[in-house]
Computed example of a mutant assay.
Amino acid sequence: MSRPERGVQFAKSIKVIDWLKTEVLDQIATLFKGIHYANQHMIIDSLSSLAISVYVLARRMGFSFRELDQAVSQKLREHAREGHQLEEWYGDLSSLDDYLNKR
């Protein structure tokens, strides 16, 4: 690949990362609207879009999907060990870790 082509690819990568960051923010705003209006379709749609955007953003930044999954599992176990309130009250963190490890 010639030097100008590498420059174009670099600029394109930066632009895609910036676009994905705005997608994450947009989906958070949509999630909040869905919660405000108690719109289940809007909530699940924005949550799924947010998850997709996060995974693709991680990939565009040089991390594999597996690396992100492993980091999430590690973070879940760490928070559960430290007595995070969501774990103490509901067991959500260990439940999510179990689910992710079984897929």
Score class of each variant (00 low, 15 high):
residue 12 K to I: 07
residue 71 A to L: 09
residue 27 Q to S: 11
residue 81 R to S: 12
residue 70 Q to F: 00
residue 29 A to F: 10
residue 73 S to K: 08
residue 66 R to C: 08
residue 86 L to K: 11
residue 44 I to K: 09
residue 77 R to S: 10
residue 24 V to S: 01
residue 77 R to K: 07
residue 8 V to Q: 11
residue 23 E to R: 13
residue 49 S to A: 14
residue 25 L to V: 10
residue 31 L to P: 01
residue 43 I to K: 04
residue 81 R to P: 02
residue 19 W to I: 12
residue 8 V to P: 00
residue 29 A to K: 07
residue 52 I to A: 14
residue 23 E to I: 06
residue 60 R to Y: 08
residue 60 R to N: 12
residue 50 L to R: 00
residue 41 H to Y: 07
residue 56 V to A: 05
residue 59 R to N: 13
residue 51 A to D: 06
residue 94 S to I: 01
residue 52 I to M: 13
residue 27 Q to G: 03
residue 15 K to T: 10
residue 4 P to K: 10
residue 37 Y to S: 13
residue 97 D to S: 08
residue 4 P to A: 04
residue 64 S to V: 07
residue 97 D to W: 00
residue 49 S to G: 13
residue 24 V to P: 01
residue 44 I to A: 08
residue 15 K to D: 15
residue 90 Y to R: 04
residue 23 E to G: 05
residue 71 A to D: 09
residue 9 Q to P: 04
residue 26 D to W: 03
residue 6 R to E: 06
residue 96 L to A: 04
residue 25 L to H: 13
residue 80 A to P: 01
residue 30 T to A: 13
residue 64 S to H: 04
residue 46 S to D: 06
residue 37 Y to V: 07
residue 38 A to K: 09
residue 62 G to Q: 10
residue 26 D to L: 08
residue 101 N to P: 01
residue 30 T to R: 06
residue 64 S to G: 12
residue 72 V to L: 10
residue 86 L to N: 08
residue 6 R to L: 11
residue 45 D to K: 09
residue 20 L to F: 02
residue 46 S to H: 03
residue 78 E to A: 06
residue 84 H to P: 05
residue 33 K to G: 00
residue 63 F to W: 13
residue 91 G to R: 02
residue 33 K to S: 06
residue 75 K to Y: 03
residue 11 A to D: 11
residue 60 R to A: 13
residue 40 Q to R: 07
residue 59 R to M: 13
residue 37 Y to P: 00
residue 55 Y to F: 13
residue 73 S to Y: 05
residue 94 S to F: 00
residue 50 L to P: 05
residue 36 H to D: 08
residue 94 S to T: 12
residue 103 R to S: 12
residue 59 R to K: 15
residue 37 Y to D: 15
